[in-house]
Design a protein around this nucleic acid. Structure first.
Lengths: 199, 199
DNA sequence: AAGATTAGCTTGACAGTGTCAATTTTAATA
DNA sequence: TATTAAAATTGACACTGTCAAGCTAATCTT
């Protein structure tokens, strides 16, 4: 019934998918440095050069991993937005909770996701996935006034504040302070932004 | 007169310094990936294993490079603060200009500077240098009201917004938007923070 | 001043890494 | 069934960081 007693087939079946999952596991277990082409191959049970037939080198595999990451990221935000009260501020808060949650629970993945130099950014799936995440932000910012007449400024303000904070948290800077305190409520930061509901 | 006709001496003279400078040059020229122990050694004119006698591996050299980086970083902020009008908001703006300038002109160095995992963070000089940079921020935020009764929240808000923005800029995310626009004025973002002079 | 000590550096090796070329194995096709 | 294409393997190469052993030259001790 199982493959237990069968010979290992020459063809893997779905090596692309196996490599992506191996990569994400390696990221979770050992951080960014643990993500290597050879280890992904080994974990998928194939030889070190097999991935080359599915991805254009390490960068190609990373493109696929990051694509997956963007989908998980957008999901996490959407789930937390859906769980929030249905007013703009609450929805924004939910979005931020989701952002922070994703960053904390997928630390290594989150650390590579926003670096375009890790990707072939002409990749179609990557573009679609990245846009789907960015669209969450655009939608969540839309109800607010744009003090400088440009919606993008508001988006960037929220986006950068979130990204700056999770970066510091991830890199161990925030806990650099002499006193030890509990993790910051991200919405304390967000509420420092001049955001008012348009009306 | 010059060393041109002399034999290369066995002892370098000041290899530590030469390695740090080689490292910074490599970062500027080829980004983070270009920073390798062996290339630093080659550029300093010594064998590949020579650095081990001055630094505890690559991480040790990076600790020294980042230490240098923090000093340059603090300097750049201080210069721009000094050039600003002598009121809290102008000084804050000057600080941000310096932050952004440092990040743009030392892109690779800036990208590794805030990652504690790159360093031996029990290093004394590193701690001193990092604190000197952080102190600039503390001082610049001191004149403002702290809406949540904690000065650190204000500092983190400014810090994260800056770091988030320069990160996006560096990683090529910000220019991801469909329209091409001129670089953002960082103080447009900073002015979106609820900061009022304490009185 | 002469010998002993040690700091500074070199050489050589090792296990990883990504990537390429050549080859073998299997599946699909005609 | 014979041919072709796809999938995966093997082996090599140039890098990387790190370690061990040895050599060179400056410093220290007496």
């Amino acid at each position: 019934m199982t493959k237990q007693n069968e010979q290992k087939p020459h063809h893997h079946g779905d090596l692309s998918e196996a490599l992506i999952e191996a990569g994400i596991s390696l990221l979770n277990e050992g951080g960014v440095d643990a993500l290597t082409l050879r280890k992904c191959a080994a974990r998928a049970g194939v030889s070190h050069a097999a991935p080359a037939h599915h991805f254009k080198g390490l960068k190609g595999l990373m493109t696929a991993i990051i694509t997956r990451g963007f989908l998980l990221f957008a999901d996490e935000m959407n789930v937390n937005i859906a769980a929030a009260h249905d007013d703009p501020k609450s929805r924004l808060h939910g979005c931020c909770i989701g952002y922070l949650k994703f960053s904390r629970e997928n630390s290594a993945l989150a650390s590579i996701i926003f670096d375009k130099t890790n990707c072939y950014n002409d990749d179609e799936k990557w573009n679609t996935a990245a846009d789907s995440a960015y669209q969450v932000l655009i939608d969540i910012c839309a109800p607010f006034n744009h003090p400088y007449g440009d919606a993008e400024i508001t988006q960037i303000a929220v986006w950068t504040m979130l990204e700056g904070y999770v970066n510091f948290e991830r890199k161990g800077v925030i806990n650099n302070s002499d006193r030890n305190r509990k993790p910051l409520d991200i919405n304390l930061l967000i509420d420092m932004l001049k955001l008012e509901i348009a009306g």
